[in-house]
């Protein structure tokens, strides 16, 4: 067993999506909340890739933002290398921990300051975390980082808009690597990219992981990409973990009916002749989720218990699924 680097415990995040106070008073409406993330627990081992998959609105980005501290959890806690991040870290300790993790977003253009030259964008974390570094050393380091991600040091004088989508994602990766982090949260890092460019970035991310022993939380809605990258996978549905487990096993023997359905929906690009099972229905609104198991309106195995009782995660070997039918041995 490898060491745990990140431990996410019973994490929940609720958002207030009510109409403004005055409208509520006039129309006599209650406050409306959406549980974007509900009671999610998982651990990420050092040097490994933990992937979160789920369809839109399932809570992937919210978990990413909770982990890197861009959002506060409503409940639960996040423990990074033995230290709880929940208690509002301050001063030197916060800075020491913060520099150890970074985040990469789907849209690199939105996350790169358009008025800054690339060299300044990549140097920014160095200014924050390496206060003693002089200008010359910083310039050399930026050049190294650009080379590392497959760009050239001369590219540093350009602005983000002068690059293609894939090159911009390389710049975002170089910036994320600047402070020598151990842990990177990647939210749909290749979803905005074309397949040939996506392959370049995925290859680069794996090379960097091998070279620096990086740990990734990798978020994607694309199961093929997740299959390629992940050691462990968590499947989210309406803010809850439906299934979590070792990647190989989860793809070979999916337990939860939703995981099975997602795998069935992946187009058969190898043209093996595999027949897709028909998938029914769509994701319900997260504002008004179904009672009991959130998947029950679409689930072919749903029964009375499923409509009332929320299933907890039951572990079976290297997999765990939140499903009554799995727990009862019905499927």
């Amino acid at each position: 067993m490898s060491d745990t680097l990140l431990d996410v415990r019973h994490l929940s995040r609720r958002f207030d999506v009510s109409a403004p106070w005055l409208n509520r008073k006039i129309e006599g409406k209650d406050k409306v909340y959406v549980n974007a993330v509900k009671d999610v627990s998982f651990t990420v081992a050092k040097g490994k890739t933990f992937a979160l998959v789920g369809e839109s609105g399932s809570g992937k980005s919210t978990i990413a933002r909770l982990i890197v501290g861009l959002l506060e959890p409503t409940e639960g806690e996040i423990v990074f290398d033995g230290t709880s991040l929940a208690r509002g870290l301050r001063g030197a300790e916060a800075r020491r921990l913060r520099r150890r993790f970074q985040m990469i977003f789907q849209d690199p253009l939105a996350s790169l300051n358009p008025r800054w030259r690339v060299v300044d964008i990549i140097a920014e974390p160095l200014r924050v975390f390496e206060k003693t570094m002089n200008d010359r050393a910083r310039r050399i380091r930026v050049g190294e980082l650009l080379t590392l991600v497959g760009l050239s040091p001369e590219d540093g004088i350009k602005f983000p808009h002068q690059f293609s989508g894939g090159q911009r994602q390389r710049i975002a990766i170089a910036r994320a690597l600047a402070a020598n982090p151990e842990f990177i949260v990647c939210d749909e890092p290749t979803s905005a990219l074309d397949v040939s460019v996506q392959a370049q970035i995925l290859n680069l991310m794996r090379d960097l992981q091998d070279e620096f022993g990086l740990t990734y939380v990798f978020i994607s809605h694309n199961l093929q990409v997740v299959r390629h990258m992940a050691d462990e996978i968590g499947v989210l549905y309406l803010g809850r973990l439906a299934e979590v487990g070792e990647a190989e096993a989860l793809f070979a023997t999916p337990q939860h009916p939703y995981t099975r359905m997602l795998l069935d929906a992946v187009p058969d690009i190898e043209m093996t002749g595999r027949r897709r099972k028909k998938v029914e229905g769509e994701i319900p609104s997260p504002i008004d989720p179904p009672p009991g198991c959130p998947f029950h309106p679409r689930c072919p195995f749903a029964n009375e218990r499923c409509r009332i009782e929320i299933p907890g995660l039951t572990r079976r070997g290297v997999q765990a699924a939140a499903c009554h039918a799995v727990e009862e041995g019905r499927i």
């Binding site: 293609s164 989508g165 894939g166 090159q167 074309d194 397949v195 040939s196 460019v197 996506q198 392959a199 370049q200 995925l202 290859n203 794996r206 199961l223 093929q224 990409v225 299959r227 390629h228 190989e248 793809f251 795998l263 992946v266 690009i269 190898e270 093996t272």
Partner: peptide, 18 residues
Amino acid sequence: AIPKLGENLDRLVHIPGS
């Protein structure tokens, strides 16, 4: 370049550039 469910490769085919 397309990752596939049926195979587990270390690297995807790399077409340089865009």
